[in-house]
Design a protein around this nucleic acid. Structure first.
Lengths: 201, 201
DNA sequence: CCTACCGATCGGTAGG
DNA sequence: CCTACCGATCGGTAGG
């Protein structure tokens, strides 16, 4: 767990290549080449290819954690909190697309000891979503019957953004986040409740 | 595009291994071994590893297409149609988890000529979802402003099921589908509309 | 469908 | 951080 400046640069290069090509389709020499290094030289900083993968995934987990902390750092009502959480989560993905791709797709290629730690981190993160929704249910803002499932479905919609979002496309991350939050809160059917489009402006 | 019985068996074996381990982490010899063949013998039936991947992905696309056709083969109202579509889509995933994993994760490793065809198939499939929602909006059942986005978000929630569903878990595919459809239709906030849990029984 | 083999490339290491 | 190298394994082919 050395965290020199050089190690960070290596993780960043790996992030891009793993994300664009996939972990197993990426060569340790490609990562080295991106930093103008020779293949073997990487091993002065990284113990193995898989340790590098773990570093990339851990960094993604860090981003999700801190974005969520910032998003929940207020005492708004649950609906607003959910909007903030969605914006934070979607923001991490859209601003780090290759990293998010590694996080979601290559997660499973981390070997067991490291994988357990990552699983705990992910579980803790999802717990924060469950807590948010549970609070909303308790205060009468939300009406779902299965909090665990509701949290999972919120995250599903947010997570999938990594599959189709294009930074150079027409949609901004904020627009996407608003639309997702709107759907999660009110569903497809016509609202018999005040519209949220105006109130978030 | 030979479709002998043996070719189907090979595709099935590849489906399992690609799905569980990932395309690049799977050896052509592992696929052969699953069928008690020698490595090179596969090439009597398959032109390349990537052609085998394409076959797996195409078969998944077939499943989604035909499940969707069956689901929409009735004249229910849009809300019921959406429930059917969700159940169909989720069913394909839960009943073919490894194949779905390949479909969603290893899609990008299909090379350009074949990839274009697959992209068209996927676009056509998504268009059916857009049409469904557009009809619902037209008839006043749905109230969303952006049909394209709504369709994408419906699919997002359904697709992510491949990431967490466990066939030996407590949740059945039907339960999951009902919960997803419920969330998509009515959202998290307490319904001021009739509950759907009873009407689908 | 098998045996035997090919060139290429991989992750990783030794020694400096 | 480089040079040079290692064993292992890969996808694919020839010839039967």
């Amino acid at each position: 767990m050395t965290t020199t400046a050089r190690a960070h640069e290596i993780t960043t290069a790996a992030e891009q290549l793993f994300g664009r090509q996939g972990y197993h389709a990426t060569t340790i020499r490609q990562v080295a080449g991106a930093l103008d290094l020779q293949g073997g030289s990487l091993y002065a900083h990284v113990s193995s290819k898989e340790a590098l993968l773990a570093a990339v995934v851990e960094r993604s987990a860090d981003r999700f954690d801190s974005a969520m902390s910032a998003a929940l750092d207020c005492n708004d009502d649950p609906s607003a909190q959910l909007r903030h959480a969605v914006a934070a989560h979607v923001g991490v993905i859209t601003e780090n697309l290759p990293a998010a791709t590694v996080y979601f797709q290559d997660w499973r290629h981390v070997s067991t000891p490291r994988l357990r730690r990552l699983r705990h981190r992910r579980d803790a993160y999802e717990q924060r979503w469950r807590d948010l929704i549970q609070t909303g249910v308790g205060e009468g803002h939300f009406g779902c019957t299965d909090v665990d499932m509701a949290a999972r479905l919120c995250l599903s919609t947010c997570n999938w953004v990594y599959q189709w979002f294009r930074p150079d496309g027409e949609l901004t991350a904020d627009t996407v986040a608003e639309q997702i939050a709107g759907l999660l809160l009110d569903g497809l059917r016509p609202a018999s409740r005040p519209s949220i489009e105006e109130s978030t402006k």
